[in-house]
Amino acid sequence: MVKLASARESRTYGRRLSRSRAEYINAGLYLFATVVLICGFAAEFSWEPRSGLVLMLIALALIIFVNLHDLLAHLAGIDYRFPLMEFDTQLALVEFAVPVVQVLGSLLFFVGILFSFIQAEKGYSYFKLEKHALGLLIAGPVFWVLGSIHNSCQIYERADGHVQILQQSVHIPFLIGSVLFMVGSILNSHEQAGISHHGLELLGRTWVWLGICGSLMFFIGGLTNVVKVFKMQQINRLRLEKLRGGAQDRLIQGRERHVPLIIEEPRRKMQVEDVNGPAAAAAASTPYKDVLLGR
């Protein structure tokens, strides 16, 4: 999952105070979603396993919201100008592609859980949803793994060891957790292939236990991400050389070419002084009323 504490020189989706608050809320909301996800898998061993599916749906909805917020925040840094991605590999592969892939994976996993919940709620008349649910439970974590691999491509120029440790401590738990979810869904699909199970019986114990382990890894990654966001806010100017080049630099250069009229006016006065001398400059700066009184 992409984090807003990135290597970009400026995050231009709001004022500094609102940006910092948004990054803290973003990190805290994802951490809360992982806790809800753990409770959802643990509730599968309770007397009311349907409540666990509801908690999973809530957690996945929060994860989708967090990734959409990341996507919009990164695009705001380039004024939503998609052609600038041609000149910035990291922007295209990490800051744009990863939130999109993570949203797709979370959405597919959400729909798979929703199909299982509908079948458990409505009875065994929805047999067609079984195959779709098992397939979606596999496709979602596959997208998570792909997004985690892309997320490891984030680059910092001349960053010290402390920053790199913070970066990897977030990426590695997300990658391990995504792999656990994918393996659990694949094993569950093979277990259910030769058995006639319906409803909540489609979600075997192997899937639940690996889901708990994967959710714990997501929780560890979310916890270290909170630490990373806090540290990056504090040491951003001291230990990290911001990324140069790419889409944001081109956008800033394009803005600097259009000089405002307020800045151009003093330059015109200086040119008048150089060409016509001090008298012409004084006449140019003399108000019209003073000229009439002088006459």
Score class of each variant (00 low, 15 high):
171 H>E: 14
196 S>H: 07
193 A>K: 14
170 V>L: 09
183 V>H: 02
190 H>F: 13
182 M>H: 01
188 N>A: 05
152 S>N: 12
205 R>D: 14
172 I>L: 12
178 S>Y: 00
192 Q>Y: 04
158 R>F: 12
168 Q>L: 10
169 S>Y: 02
150 H>Q: 14
204 G>Y: 05
186 I>M: 11
168 Q>A: 13
149 I>E: 00
186 I>V: 15
188 N>Q: 03
167 Q>W: 15
170 V>R: 05
186 I>T: 10
179 V>L: 12
206 T>Y: 04
183 V>F: 09
148 S>P: 07
200 L>E: 03
208 V>M: 03
172 I>W: 10
180 L>M: 15
173 P>A: 03
204 G>D: 04
175 L>M: 08
203 L>R: 12
190 H>D: 11
202 L>V: 01
178 S>L: 03
168 Q>G: 07
189 S>W: 05
183 V>G: 03
187 L>R: 12
177 G>F: 07
189 S>R: 09
153 C>P: 04
179 V>Q: 03
186 I>S: 04
171 H>A: 12
164 Q>K: 12
184 G>I: 02
195 I>K: 08
166 L>Y: 02
173 P>W: 07
181 F>M: 08
166 L>W: 00
188 N>D: 09
179 V>N: 04
177 G>E: 01
173 P>T: 02
175 L>G: 10
163 V>I: 13
197 H>W: 10
185 S>P: 05
184 G>R: 04
191 E>Y: 13
155 I>P: 01
202 L>G: 00
180 L>F: 15
184 G>Q: 05
153 C>D: 10
208 V>E: 00
177 G>D: 00
178 S>A: 13
